[in-house]
Design a binder for these strands. Structure first.
Length: 287
DNA sequence: GCCCAGGAGTGTG
DNA sequence: CACACTCATGGG
């Protein structure tokens, strides 16, 4: 019998708006009351903060949901320890208090891979729409009005013509090729690789270059040393660190500077750069 | 209507 | 290695 399940989690610090609304993941949506809802695996989940407690509703409930939510929000990351290390950077140091609750998320590898291949040369609203279209047409229903992201098998069964009608543009070809070159076994093998090998392996896949490989390494495979660089990060690195150049040059700068938690540094800077473009507010500065 | 987007692939100097 | 060009499209 499918029933709803409610429970609390201790995850602190945690800011749901910063964590779920900044382009790490694309299927959560925010209600007017501040709660966030989205499909997580085979569960439709709604979460909200009450003080330092995270209140969770899941449908259907079941064993492992608690661990699933905790894992997705990387509850075991010691933010204070991470920030203590990143505070060695004077630019980050001044703004860290404002992003304490911004956590890296841990997403499903396959969903993350397809999502960030779709994300190439598109803005976040459009990425969200492409992913919703694929899910609503080809994913499994898990609750009224909610469907899971399509599995590899489900997406592989979609005809070329059908996929072409999903508004993916030239990305449709990448998705088809991904289905042919990646399966669960390939992903399991990639989980075992050290970061640099994983990165190179990902870049062998169709539609995956430097930036997508780093996003999938970071969010899908949980490699916190990844440092994805898009146009927003180029601006941030130029403005705050006076760094310009090729992807490889910028990346090596970031790896040297931020080390094993470069991914957190990246998300902090990315969040800040978009915030600045939005309403002029700014957490980090170089002054 | 215009501008731009969590870029990648390919070819050329 | 570093650029230049193309790809296809919809949201702001």
């Amino acid at each position: 019998m499918r029933t709803e399940m409610r429970f609390d989690l201790e995850i602190s610090p945690l800011d749901l708006d910063q964590t779920l609304g900044c382009g790490q993941t694309f299927r959560w949506h925010r209600s007017a009351d501040g709660a966030w809802s989205g499909p997580l695996g085979r569960h439709s989940v709604t979460i909200s903060m009450s003080g330092r407690r995270l209140e969770v509703e899941a449908f259907p409930g079941g064993r492992g949901v608690r661990e699933f939510v905790a894992s997705h929000l990387r509850a075991d990351d010691d933010i204070r320890s991470i920030q203590r290390i990143l505070a060695k950077d004077p630019v980050l140091k001044r703004g860290l208090a404002h992003v304490k609750g911004l956590r890296i998320v841990k997403t499903d590898e396959w969903e993350c891979l397809v999502s960030f291949v779709l994300a190439t040369y598109a803005n976040i609203p459009r990425i969200t729409k492409m992913i919703e279209t694929l899910s609503s047409r080809f994913g499994s229903p898990i609750a009224p009005g909610v469907r899971a992201f399509p599995t590899h098998a489900q997406l592989s069964a979609v005809s070329k013509a059908e996929l072409a009608e999903c508004g993916l543009g030239y990305r449709a070809g990448y998705v088809r090729e991904l289905c042919e070159t990646v399966d669960e076994g390939v992903i399991e093998d990639m989980k075992k690789l050290p970061y640099n090998d994983l990165r190179e392996r990902l870049k062998e896949l169709p539609g995956v270059g430097d930036k997508v490989a780093d996003c999938v390494s970071l969010f899908g495979f949980g490699r916190l040393e990844s440092f994805p660089i898009d146009v927003w990060m180029e601006r941030a690195l130029a403005r705050l660190y006076h760094q310009k150049g090729t992807y490889g040059k910028l990346r090596s700068f970031a790896v040297r500077r931020f080390g094993q938690y470069a991914g957190y540094a990246q998300e902090y800077l990315y969040f800040n750069e978009r915030l600045k473009a939005g309403d002029g507010a700014c957490v980090f500065s170089d002054e």
